[in-house]
Amino acid sequence: MAVGNKTLQDLLGPISKQMGHTAVAENVELPEWEHVPWRCTDGMNQQQLVDKFIEEAGKIGITIVRTPAADIAKAVAGIIQEGVPEAPASCTVVAANDERFAAAGLYDTVSGLGNVSELTVWDNTKGQANVDAAEKATYGITYAVGGIADTATIVQPSGPNCGRTTSLLPLVHIALVDAATIKPIMQDVMKDIEAQGGQLPSSICFISGPSATADIELVRVQGVHGPMYIYYVLVD
């Protein structure tokens, strides 16, 4: 038999046969799961969830900045002004195209900073130029759609106004996240996504901290291929 170009039936046939099935079932219902694991976020109110989120973030090298919604521009500007050791004196920034950023005057504030030479706002009509800007950028700014208290995770989907590389290629990732969107565990986020229905984003990335490795003698090093630093701007 020739190799390659097999059909789904070629793959399924031996599996069904081994299972003693004459045909693949039309429908299989999920059972009621017998085991319901206790989780440390059980019973927490929103305030406690936010506290947990902050506590967990502190354990994995994330810097948290809290701000009221009206002051997000100031909060982000503060991070960029303070800078990180590896940042050049004059740096570039890439940011998601988000109405909340525009409304808060974030684009103007950031591009007006003394140490920022250029700000690129994600524009899907400009194609690859966005990725090139992200590749050069020291800072990438995104607005996450949610957070997970248990693991200090943010939920970052890709889309026309915010690419996969906005939060990946820059040296520093600044992620805004609304405190009200912080859920106890990943299951709650998944439930919401399932409930929304429709076509899923092509990519949903759950981000928990800076890119890191311990491949050399188990010594933890921050900043491998993704951002070396990550800031969560927690918006109240």
Partner: peptide, 11 residues
């Protein structure tokens, strides 16, 4: 508790 990245891709 969690890895830095967990990607769920759909196409």
């Amino acid at each position: 508790k969690m890895t830095a990245y967990f990607s769920v891709d759909s196409g």
